[in-house]
Design a binder for these strands. Structure first.
Length: 909
RNA sequence: GCACGGAUAGCUCAGUGGUAGAGCGGCUCGCUUACACCGAGUUGGUCGGGGGUUCGAAUCCCUCUCCGUGUACCA
């Protein structure tokens, strides 16, 4: 067996193993291996932005996917974790345009033109596109990189085109002049989902206007956007509003622009809420969705006073033209004030839609866009409602359902160049839609590209080589084996953008749901609970953390703090804790290794002999098992069961907590320490047997840990020689293919002679040790000292030795007739009374005080239980089980109290 | 406005009717031959407030407060 290094060096180990896994093609999925005995497990990565860099959200998300994938491999499944990146149309084009502008290459995208700019973006993509992929590799992601996809690959592009044409032919895609969300920064339309309503502090401006037909009548109007007055083409009042109804049909004089104070009509419209503002609404059909609708109903003129970049244009009048919209607002107020028509301005809070990407207020804008009536809504809604597809946590199902219920058509066209170009061509009055350009001269293609999500929604099958040709697709082994996928792991922030749409696409083109389970991660926040963001600078670079602590540590730290469905408070301490845990694991393995060199009986590293099957139990001799051995085997059983159950239910933090507790608190703190009684002794047979138990536990623990800590477990798996003698594909080559641990079943437990009560036996011993240690600490003893145990019943010598070692006692005398001198500190334990004889060094008063405190506690508990049991109201109504418990409690406290009283009496004598 | 989630020890969280828990931190000891990235001990809580149901409530019901998320055409 190769000797383990003294210190663990994660950087070297992680790089080495990742390369080895790649070289050995460990992550590559082969559909031909899928069979009834070897089911498929598949998961598609939420494709990160191709120009992005790894952030903590990616770490969380991809660690989870990796855990699921690795566990599935260990369960003997054929695993496909399909990776790739997203072209992220608007975001990527923005980044490249900005860079080019900074470099002084261009002032505007038109300086380059469409083709040249797209070329530049491709160059950018080729240069930066693999950064995030490399970062995922550093994290240990076990994706099948041979299948890496990009949403703008030729094959993928073909899928997008095919889908567009299909929907167009089905009549679900149409072009129309509508009010859309316009981003004045990116100069494109956005979908409703890309607009974030943001509460905004502003002002409500009240101004008055003169009724043309009744010059003495003035109406007061309240608005938040006075700069759009030049675009007003009516004012509206509610026809039921008695204050104004008689004015309907008359006109008011629009105050701006000054050079064109045109009369505009007063219309009656139910939309107007007469409780709000003044009950008089200025109607600007070009710049407000609701106003646009009013305009439609009353056939109003539409005056667009803004350039696409939200600078006021000539129609706004000479005073406002050329001003940015917020400057224009100030100027408009000034003008109204000069006119003497400003009444007042009041602070006002309203919701303003912000562009999700550009972070600027969007403008409702009338423009020609492409829209999609969503397909397969019914199936998509039902599949989740009926629980055929499961959401974790399931409350997202309601959110999903609600969105689908009130769903609006999707604006899918974008006025940028980086993206899938709309496959529609025009020639005069003719329109052609097809996957390639039409025959003949004079056709021009629609300049718009498609929303990035219009490609992402095909991800689960477009990445698997879908062609839309039924025959071809049914002969496609990848699709056949791995679609529908098993799990999807993503953030709830893209439940509408992506998840819901993928479900629709799955039904529409594959006639089947795209995944069976969706796990929604929480959002990573900083210690103060704020979202992580670049501008706050509170987002650590995962790569720095990996350098500092290792990828395993980062993974473990993040998973430990990520309860199901809850936001995560990130604290670097958790990563540090992950590193410490790896170190502990490393040292525990080293401890085992150091024992073998001193061992007498030759035992193979895994406690196995040549040609044995994988099961190591055969090497453990049941007759030689100590109570500690039985205890740790039972605790291991519990840990395996708990971790397995937690993973089934996507409770990753519970799984990590169990692993931590089992390995650190149970295995290292108790079992290893107790086993030293044997390992430092002279019974060679027992030593060998203890080592076999240790190997059994370690080999199981490493496997249990592997999905969480892939690197260090692999290193130790080989370092400890646990891989030796295993078939290549079952742990010989890599721990990632070793079988997922199973708890010992009833037969195996019987074989080892392990009974459930064995756990309590060992626990009593450990409790005794705890109490003894407590005595030592109370009296500030930090050296090896003599303890005396006055046992309740006879104890085997081995058990006494274990207690001695755990207590660090020198010696531990067992004396059933021990008569302590007055004032000897003592503790009542499950195994008897433990004394710490200090030969007159102790303070009788102090000991009396200590015992007195214990007694007071016992008395108060006794009182409580007695009172309860004396209460007829209680005893008559309570179930027998509870009554028994209380009865037992009563007896326990009575006994304890009696003994404490005795001790106190002895101290006072 | 509506819906959902959350509020338990200094911090992060378990705990869905029967003696309030864990990890981390804090404090006190200790370089005991795997590990100081460690070990031992110990300290922390009228379970957000108020009502109610019950023999018994962190847990069930009502109500309020605060935080978060989603959603809604109020200029």
């Amino acid at each position: 067996m190769p000797e383990l290094e003294k210190t663990y060096t994660p950087a070297e180990v992680e790089a080495r193993w990742y390369q080895r896994w790649l070289d050995d093609k460990c992550f590559e999925a082969d559909p031909s291996r899928v069979s009834e005995k070897r089911p498929a497990y598949s998961i598609v990565i939420p494709p990160p932005n191709v120009t992005g860099v790894l952030h903590m959200g990616h770490v969380l998300n991809n660690t989870i996917q990796d855990i699921l994938s690795r566990r599935a491999r260990m369960q003997g499944k054929e695993v496909l974790w399909l990776p790739g990146t997203d072209h992220a149309g608007i975001a990527t084009q923005n980044v490249v345009e900005k860079t080019l502008k900074k470099q002084g290459v261009i002032k505007h995208r038109d300086d380059l033109g469409r083709e040249k700019l797209v070329e530049k973006i491709w160059e950018w993509k080729d240069k930066h596109g693999d950064i995030i992929i490399d970062q995922l590799k550093k994290l240990g992601a076990s994706c099948d990189w041979s299948r890496q996809r990009f949403t703008f690959d030729d094959d993928y592009n073909a899928c997008v085109m095919r889908v567009f044409v299909d929907l167009y032919k089905k009549g679900l895609i149409y072009r129309g002049r509508r009010m859309v969300n316009w981003c004045p920064s990116s100069l494109t339309a956005l979908s409703d989902e890309e607009v974030i309503p943001t509460p905004q502090k502003g002002f409500m401006y009240h101004f008055k206007v003169q009724v043309v037909e009744e010059p003495d009548t003035w109406l007061e109007i309240a608005t938040t956007r006075p700069e759009t007055i030049p675009g007003d083409t009516a004012v509206a009042v509610n026809p039921k509003d008695e204050r104004y109804a008689h004015l309907i049909g008359k006109h008011i004089k629009r105050p701006l622009p000054l050079e064109n104070q045109a009369p505009i009509p007063i219309v009656g419209d139910d939309h107007v809420d007469f409780e709000f503002g003044t009950g008089v609404l200025k109607v600007t059909p070009a710049h407000d969705k609701a106003d646009f609708e009013i305009g439609q109903r009353h056939n109003l003129e539409i005056i667009d006073v803004l350039h696409p970049n939200a600078i006021l244009n000539e129609l706004a009048g000479k005073d406002l033209a050329g001003l940015e919209r917020f400057e224009g607002r100030k100027k408009a107020v000034e003008l109204l004030t000069e006119l003497g028509v400003m009444v007042k301005e009041e602070p006002h809070q309203n919701n303003v839609g912000y562009s999700e990407r550009a972070g600027v207020p969007i403008e409702p804008r009338l423009s020609e866009q492409w829209f999609l009536k969503y397909p397969s809504i019914k199936e998509s809604q039902d599949v989740v409602a009926k629980g055929e597809m499961k959401f974790y946590p399931d409350r997202w199902a309601k959110v999903y359902d609600h969105w689908l219920t009130g769903i609006q058509d999707w604006c899918i066209s974008r006025q940028v160049w980086w993206g899938h170009r709309i496959p529609v061509w025009y020639r005069g009055e003719e329109t052609y839609c097809g996957t390639s350009a039409p025959e003949g001269e004079g056709w021009t293609q629609d300049p718009d590209v498609l929303d990035t999500w219009f490609s992402s929604w095909l991800w689960p099958f477009a990445t698997m080589g879908w062609t839309g040709d039924k025959e071809k697709d049914s002969a496609n082994p990848t699709l056949k084996a791995f679609y529908p996928t098993t799990d999807l792991v993503t953030g709830p922030d893209i439940i509408f953008f992506w998840v819901a749409r993928m479900i629709m696409a799955g039904f529409e083109w594959m006639s089947e749901l795209p995944f069976k389970n969706v796990y929604y991660t929480g959002i990573i926040r900083d210690k103060q609970g704020r979202k992580m963001s670049k501008s706050l600078g509170n987002s650590p670079d995962p790569l720095d953390l990996i350098t500092k602590y290792s990828a395993d540590a980062l993974r473990f730290g993040i998973m430990r703090s990520a309860p199901l469905g809850q936001d995560i408070r990130y604290d670097e301490q958790n990563v540090e804790l992950g590193r410490n845990f790896c170190t502990k694991l490393w040292n525990a393995a080293r401890f085992r290794q150091m024992q073998s060199s001193t061992g007498f009986q030759p035992v193979s590293p895994d406690g196995r002999v040549e040609n044995s099957s994988y099961i190591t139990e055969a090497e453990i001799s049941p007759t030689l098992l100590s109570s500690d051995d039985k205890w740790i085997l039972l605790r291991l059983n519990t840990a395996i069961a708990e971790v397995s159950a937690a993973l089934e239910e996507y409770r990753f933090s519970d799984a990590t907590a169990t692993l931590y507790r089992f390995f650190w608190s149970e295995y290292c703190d108790w079992y290893i320490e107790a086993s030293k009684a044997v390992l430092q002794g002279s019974d060679e047979k027992r030593k060998a047997n203890t080592l076999a138990v240790i190997d059994f536990v370690l080999s199981h623990t490493l496997r249990l840990f592997h999905p969480f800590l892939p690197f260090i477990t692999e290193e130790l798996w080989h370092g400890m020689g646990f891989n030796a003698d295993l078939p290549e594909n079952q742990g010989g080559k890599s721990i990632m293919f070793a079988p997922w641990p199973k708890p010992l079943d009833a037969d195996e437990l019987a074989h080892f002679g392990i009974l459930p009560e064995d756990e309590a036996t060992a626990n009593q011993k450990y409790e005794t040790v705890n109490l003894g240690r407590g005595l030592k600490s109370t009296f500030n003893i930090n050296k090896k000292v003599r303890f005396v145990l006055k046992p309740n019943q006879e104890l085997p010598g081995h058990e006494i030795e274990v207690i001695r070692i755990l207590l660090n006692a020198e010696p531990l005398d067992v004396d059933a007739s021990f008569a302590p001198t007055k004032g000897t500190p003592s503790a009542l334990t499950p195994l008897g009374t433990v004394f710490l004889p200090l030969d007159g060094l102790i303070d009788v008063e102090a000991e009396r005080a200590r015992v007195g405190k214990d007694l007071a506690k016992a008395e108060s508990e006794l009182e409580k239980v007695t009172a309860k049991l004396a209460d007829e109201n209680f005893t008559s109504k309570v179930p027998q089980k509870v009554l028994d418990e209380h009865q037992q409690r009563l007896t326990d406290w009575q006994e304890k109290s009696a003994k404490l009283k005795e001790m106190l009496a002895a101290l006072s004598a």
